[in-house]
Design a protein around this nucleic acid. Structure first.
Lengths: 353, 353
DNA sequence: CTGTTAGCGCTTTCAT
DNA sequence: ATGAAAGCGCTAACAG
């Protein structure tokens, strides 16, 4: 004989334990059950019934149905986070911060990785919109592609109209943001190099179309100009924001401008590649022959060979702030996150010649 | 029958665009609209109506309501992934693989980070159960705590009863798993060290209660025993699976057993700490004085100083397989993922004495 | 091929 | 304080 979960009255096949069943089991109305099990604080149910409902729920192993709740109250507790690549320590750090904050707010984070495809980013905000996510966090850099940006903006506008909140990590003109001073950081790095006597500095940059890259590059360029130096285009090479990209770019850069005494990598992952290129491929000493500075200060920067001098960005905190921004746990006008230069062993005085 | 909702455009800027509205706008029934907009492939709608519905949806800017769909068909397209810490490259790699596979299946990944708190893991499977996630991926190591394990198992059983699928990355007796040969990998590492002439080998291990740690440790111990060597408890120190943990453990290990010529770190992040301890704190050479081998082969292993010899685990692929396992995109009996030893520069012959 | 019509499980007035 | 009932937006029989 079959062994159904409980005796069924008419046809109604059993299985999932619903609020309905909990209510029956406790001998109360479904409304009451809802109030005790999901009622937000406003305890408006008598002690006796409350107890009965609670034990019924426990006995039956009740688990609330989030989609049903979402439908009924048209609001979910999921926050979408769109990153380029979770395996990239930059995004991993942001995600970690966001998740920490989410836990405090009892929110769930749904992460989508675009693998650097802007089309996918748009597709994902649409998905998250369909999920009726409570908020959306855009962690990746924006692009200077107007059409893409406009389409994204349209999708985000729709999301907001449905009542969703949006926050960006780093300015990208698509809503409130947790500002990240890319330009300032790059300026700090360039200035340090200048101070060390470097006059011929090259830059290994990420994809040229990324706003973040443009801002960092502009910061370095401006600082150098102000100092009386320069950063001609011939000293900048763009590549993927990866270790391989950094390595190739460094090789090209130093082939093109052999006299460079320092290179600024626009992120730490690329810096790792630069270090490999300079030391292993080219057999030059760091910082003896050429100094290298990175950007972001991801966890492994200190373990690089030599330990990387880099611009520190408080990524985890940025992630936390982003969720605070969308759940208004904190005032929107907090002092911006500071960037700082962490001087380690990959930089030194410019070699005499 | 007056529709109370769409009483025209007075006041409120017409609420959400629902299927109902799209249907009206297209002059078809809501069922037809549903069929064209969400109908899975089985095109059973006339060309004419199909076109009308599609353009109506576009004009109105319709976005489907996932929670409503989930409720109606009692199935979602979200897959939960529970990790210890997204910022840890081990989990980041797994997550990246999972997301890549998820995209192909048009699934969304909801990541929950336990920050290494087993209680939280249980809490999160409950949450994901409430979300009616289609599947659950457990990426973290299990524990040898019986009570915790039982409670988790109970929760997972409930999840399965509701129709959810579960997969683990690495065996943990909680359902089908993407096997990861922790023991075999450790054996390979230990054997290599032995081959290089090392006879006094120490181990810097992660938390003792983690199954993964126990398996790796057992693998190393057994290999050594087989070779005629040994791994007494005095040569094993447990600490957090972090850089700091690795560093402290290495310091303690070498203080306790100064004669060690090699140390096996049970993951690469710890290995980074070991390298720092040995070289920077103790001023000993690697691999001249002591050889170091890591575990996992995370991306930065090659950039460590010196480049780390380590056991390679195909983490991204494991993540991909895990989602394939729960959506049965692939047969369950695929050949297990292979582990291999990547020999780099942190290992060398045992020093003569 | 298209429309009707029950629900899916829960929240939330509105009464009592 | 508690219950009855009307939805929330969509899917899936079940007719035509």
């Amino acid at each position: 004989m079959a062994n159904p979960r409980s005796t069924t009255r008419a046809g109604r096949s059993t299985g999932a334990v619903t609020l309905q069943r909990v209510a029956e089991h406790a001998g109360v109305s479904i409304a009451t059950a809802s109030r005790v099990l999901h009622g937000g604080g406003s305890r408006t149910v008598g002690e006796e019934l409350r107890r009965r409902v609670e034990s019924a729920a426990r006995e039956l192993g009740y688990v609330s149905n989030a989609p049903a709740q979402a439908l009924a109250r048209s609001a979910t507790s999921v926050v979408g986070l769109i990153v380029h690549d979770v395996a990239d320590p930059y995004f991993a750090a942001i995600a970690a911060g966001a998740m920490r904050a989410a836990r405090r707010q009892r929110l769930m984070i749904m992460i989508a990785a675009t693998f650097r495809d802007p089309e996918l980013e748009i597709e994902y905000v649409r998905s998250l919109r369909a999920q009726r996510a409570r908020a959306l966090l855009l962690a990746g850099s924006g692009t200077d592609d107007r059409s893409l940006t406009d389409r994204l903006a349209a999708e985000l506008a729709g999301f907001r109209e449905d009542g969703g909140r949006v926050a960006c990590i780093g300015e990208r003109g698509a809503g409130p943001a947790v500002p990240l001073d890319h330009a300032g950081g790059a300026a700090r790095a360039a200035t340090e190099l200048w101070r060390l006597g470097h006059r011929r500095i090259g830059v290994v940059a990420g994809p040229a179309e990324l706003l973040t890259v443009q801002q960092r590059l502009a910061g370095a360029r401006q600082a150098l100009a102000q100092l009386g130096g320069e950063l001609p285009d011939s000293r900048v090479v763009f590549a993927d924001f990866t270790r391989a990209g950094g390595r190739e770019a460094a090789l090209e850069l130093l082939a093109r401008e052999p006299g460079l005494t320092a290179v600024l990598a626009l992120n730490d992952v690329m810096a790792a590649g630069v270090l490999a290129a300079v030391q292993d491929d080219l057999g030059r000493a760091v910082p003896g022959d050429v100094s290298v500075v990175g950007f972001d200060d991801v966890p492994f920067a200190v373990d690089l060979r030599p330990a990387l001098t880099t611009v520190r960005l408080p990524l985890e905190e940025a992630g936390e702030r982003a969720v605070q921004l969308v759940v208004e746990e904190a005032p929107a006008d907090r002092p911006p996150l500071g960037v700082s230069l962490v001087v380690r062993d990959s930089t030194g005085p410019a070699p005499q010649r």
